[in-house]
Simulated assay, not measured.
Amino acid sequence: MKLDFTVRHFTLTPAIKKFAREQTKKVAKLLDDRDHIRLHLTMAIEKHRNLAELVLTMGEQVLTGKATTDDMYQSITQATEKLARQVNKLKEKVETKRKTRASVKEVTAAAEAARSEAEGTADEAAPEATKKPRIIPTRRYAIKPMTPDDAAASLSPKDQFVVFRNMVTDRVGVLYRRPDGNFGLIEP
């Protein structure tokens, strides 16, 4: 990790420089002290305020921590703490995405394995890109003439949809259970 300093309206003492390096090591530990990380610390004194701004550049990510106090040491500490919170939030976001992707892959793999077992033939030799999705008939439905209200009444808790012929319009319709508890009706 590389740390650059910019100082405005005061001189940078070795003690402040050492303190800033020690504080920024906390952020470096959070990021596993990677080489492609750059930190830029800007310190300034305006009237009676001590300003510290830490800008972390990591690839395309840019995070900023700013603080203004009466003491430069406190400003550096607060700016570092703000930046550390942002880094933790970013790490949690990345981990959540990674876990979500992994769980989706696991579910997809399990579904694929179950489908292969159900079909009785595992087509392992063919690459994934050349496989075409197949239509697998599961069961037949008897299309009965009824109204949409009758179809809703006939929908059992284990079924998610019912196919019927609308008595009024004489068209085939599909009534399905929506996540909000209501029913949806599809008619071509």
Rank of each mutant, 00 (worst) to 15 (best):
M1Q: 06
K2G: 14
L3F: 05
D4Y: 11
D4A: 14
F5E: 01
H9Y: 07
H9M: 05
F10T: 00
K17N: 06
K17F: 04
K18A: 13
A20Q: 04
R21C: 05
E22H: 11
T24C: 11
K25S: 12
K26T: 06
V27S: 02
D33S: 11
R34V: 11
D35H: 09
D35C: 02
H36I: 09
I37G: 06
L39A: 03
L39S: 02
M43D: 08
A44Y: 04
E46W: 03
K47R: 12
R49D: 09
A52L: 02
E60H: 15
E60A: 11
L63R: 03
T68F: 08
D70W: 05
D70T: 13
Y73T: 15
S75L: 06
L83C: 02
R85N: 10
V87G: 01
V94A: 09
A102S: 12
S103L: 08
E106S: 12
E106W: 03
V107P: 00
A110P: 00
A114S: 10
A114N: 11
E117S: 12
E117V: 02
D123C: 04
E124M: 10
E128C: 03
T130A: 10
K131E: 04
R134I: 14
I136G: 01
P137L: 04
R140D: 13
Y141T: 14
K144H: 13
K144N: 15
P145C: 05
M146G: 02
D149H: 09
A151S: 02
A152D: 08
S154C: 10
S156E: 14
P157M: 11
Q160R: 11
V162I: 15
V163W: 00
R165E: 09
T169L: 07
D170I: 06
D170G: 03
R171G: 09
L175E: 01
R178F: 01
F183G: 01
G184R: 00
